[in-house]
């Protein structure tokens, strides 16, 4: 159940996308998301989807694996869909009790759904093909200018990478504690909202304690291995642009230009 969350998880295989510089992938993800919000016609979305499909093909990550990750955000998706479907004013199409479905509503809902799905698959494709270490290295490198503003860029990047590493461990821990409390007769499923919130205490307290214990151990282990912040650190996998990275940038720019021309200018 908790294991199904694939969002933010790295999928280990070898592919062109895996080998790309993380800065390229971060920039690509950002541009892709921007393009989704600039596009306002069908052809634009078709192009975005096609671009994404090609990337997925290149990534060697099974599509099923990505869809599995989507399940966890299905609720969010449905919520956005229903919200837009019923609450957009315009020409009525169907009337259900007090709610009206409008033509604009359908259009809006469809647009939102497509955007969300593409956005989520797009960004999970990045995390699936980039190890958290690369990801944070890339972020750190792209945000370097912020260092001048005294933003602790390296520290933030390190924190993110550690958080990512501990997500699956804490998930497993949650599962275990939950089962242990169920074995002691705890009930996480019935009762009203307040009762349910109260029932979470026996789960949350041990989970917090576990997280702090781990954090403490980890800090000690890092210190023992001479960690003292970003100063004077070298990199095992320094970010060096290869030819393929420049080519990827070129393809990306091409896509971005095309999608804006087609997606914004062409009529449906």
């Amino acid at each position: 159940m908790l294991r199904d969350i694939t969002l933010g998880q790295y999928y280990q295989t070898d592919s062109l996308l895996h080998r790309l510089d993380s800065r390229v992938k971060l920039t690509a993800t950002l541009l892709f998301i921007i393009s989704l919000f600039l596009v306002n016609n069908l052809w634009g979305y078709v192009m975005a989807a096609a671009f994404l499909a090609v990337c997925i093909r290149l990534s060697h990550v099974p599509f099923r694996y990505m869809v599995k990750g989507m399940r966890t955000i299905l609720f969010l998706l449905l919520f956005a869909l229903v919200f837009n479907l019923f609450l957009t004013p315009g020409t009525p199409v169907v009337r259900l009790w007090k709610l009206t479905v409008t033509k604009e509503g359908i259009r809006m809902a469809a647009q939102i759904a497509v955007r969300l799905v593409l956005l989520i698959i797009g960004s999970s494709l990045m995390t699936l093909t980039t190890t958290p270490n690369h990801l944070t290295d890339g972020l750190e490198s792209l945000m370097k200018p912020l260092k001048k503003l005294r933003v602790p860029v390296h520290e933030v990047a390190m924190m993110m990478s550690i958080a990512l590493r501990f997500i699956p461990i804490l998930m497993e821990e949650t599962d275990k504690i939950m089962k242990a409390q169920i074995a002691r007769g705890a009930d996480f499923e019935s009762g009203n909202l307040i009762q349910r919130a109260k029932a979470m205490v026996p789960l949350l307290v041990p989970l917090f304690i576990a997280a702090f214990r781990r954090a403490n151990d980890l800090a000690l282990a890092m210190e023992a291995r001479c960690y003292r912040g970003g100063e004077g650190r070298t990199k095992m996998k320094p970010l060096v642009y290869q030819r393929r990275d420049y080519m990827a940038y070129a393809v990306l720019l091409l896509y971005f230009a095309a999608v804006i021309v087609i997606g914004r200018i062409l009529p449906i």
């Binding site: 242990a180 002691r184 026996p202 041990p206 576990a210």
Partner: peptide, 29 residues
């Protein structure tokens, strides 16, 4: 679940109450 009591590995990781006695009361409660 009360007839077949199951103690997990590292059961001390499930302790959560403010005092020992209340924690032991959790099950029968």
């Amino acid at each position: 679940r009360s007839s077949v009591g199951l103690v997990f590995q590292y059961p001390e990781h499930q302790l959560f109450e403010a005092d020992v006695f209340s924690d032991v009361c959790f099950g029968p409660n």
